[in-house]
């Protein structure tokens, strides 16, 4: 008995030494500082290079304001549509058993695997002047490519999986017992969705909406291919940033970019908070 008590505690051996920990923490902090923090600092410093008045006038420029407005319009169309779609897909996939479920899930996730440039190109091939529907669209004076509808479509494509992907696993995990109970108590389909299902997945839903919103406002490759880069008309914020940067209007480019960087930081902060809340909510149940 006393021999056992005197034996070294295995837990002390099954850990890295203090110095090894120090080295690993230093490598982690250094790597993240170099690759994540430094770019953010560059955005902040370059954006403030011409002072507060330079910053404000860069954002007040008519082309910049048009880009900001277009970005908000596109997000205002795309995010609600993909939220509605994501909830439909999550309900059908999570609450029912049917053949081909894996295939459907894979197809919904497909846009994540496609290069942004290809995501834009497919719409050019479908709706562009040389595209499959080009002649028909031209005859009916409908312009999709190099116009706002093309930007909306390309953004819909790249943000398609976000909401479904966040909500479906959680809905699946929660099963169907609560909904079936509500049903036997006489709740209609929409009522039970609103009062039973939605409260259970609200944090995941918000996370999905936030991520879809961030991506729709920040998408560059796909939008760049379909937009035509017409200043004041078809430039979103990321495209305007590119134009300014290539014109060596560095401070103005970073001023606009700082809006997107701030959006990214707010998104990350809220996401961390929502995941924490979601974790607490699940823990309480």
């Amino acid at each position: 008995m006393s021999d056992l008590a005197a034996a070294p505690r295995p837990a002390a051996v099954a850990d890295e030494s203090v110095s090894a920990r120090g080295v690993l923490i230093a490598v982690t902090a250094g790597f993240l500082g170099l690759f994540l923090l430094a770019p953010l600092l560059v955005v902040a410093v370059e954006a403030s290079n011409k002072g507060w008045s330079g910053y404000v006038s860069a954002l007040a420029d008519p082309d910049a304001r048009a880009a900001i407005a277009l970005t908000l319009v596109v997000a205002a169309i795309v995010v609600p549509l993909n939220t509605a779609f994501g909830l439909c897909a999550a309900w059908a996939i999570a609450k029912f058993q049917f053949r081909g479920k894996n295939l459907l899930t894979t197809l919904i996730d497909l846009p994540f695997s496609v290069s942004p440039v290809v995501s834009g190109l497919v719409f050019v091939l479908l709706f562009g002047a040389q595209g499959l529907m080009g002649n028909w669209l031209a005859a009916h004076h409908v312009q999709i490519i190099f116009a706002v509808p093309g930007i909306v479509l390309a953004t819909l494509f790249v943000t398609f999986p976000f909401v479904a992907r966040e909500v479906t696993p959680l809905m699946q995990q929660q099963g169907t017992a609560e909904e079936e109970a509500a049903l036997t108590l006489g709740a209609s389909g929409l009522t039970l969705f609103r009062t039973v299902t939605l409260p259970n997945v609200k944090w995941a839903l918000l996370t999905g909406v936030l991520l879809a919103n961030a991506r729709s406002m920040g998408e560059f490759g796909a939008v760049s291919v379909v937009s035509g880069h017409i200043r004041g008309l078809t430039n979103t914020i990321p495209l305007q940033v590119e134009i300014l940067y290539n014109e060596y209007s560095i401070a103005a480019a970073f001023a606009l970019a700082s809006l997107l960087a701030a959006l990214a930081l707010v998104t990350l902060g809220l996401k961390t908070f929502l995941e924490y809340r979601g974790g607490v909510a699940r823990h309480d149940r």
Binding site: P238, Y245, L263, A264
Partner: peptide, 11 residues
């Protein structure tokens, strides 16, 4: 994941 690629690119 959150920072737009164009912003990352110029930074």
């Amino acid at each position: 994941f959150a920072l737009p690629t164009a912003v990352a690119g110029i930074a």
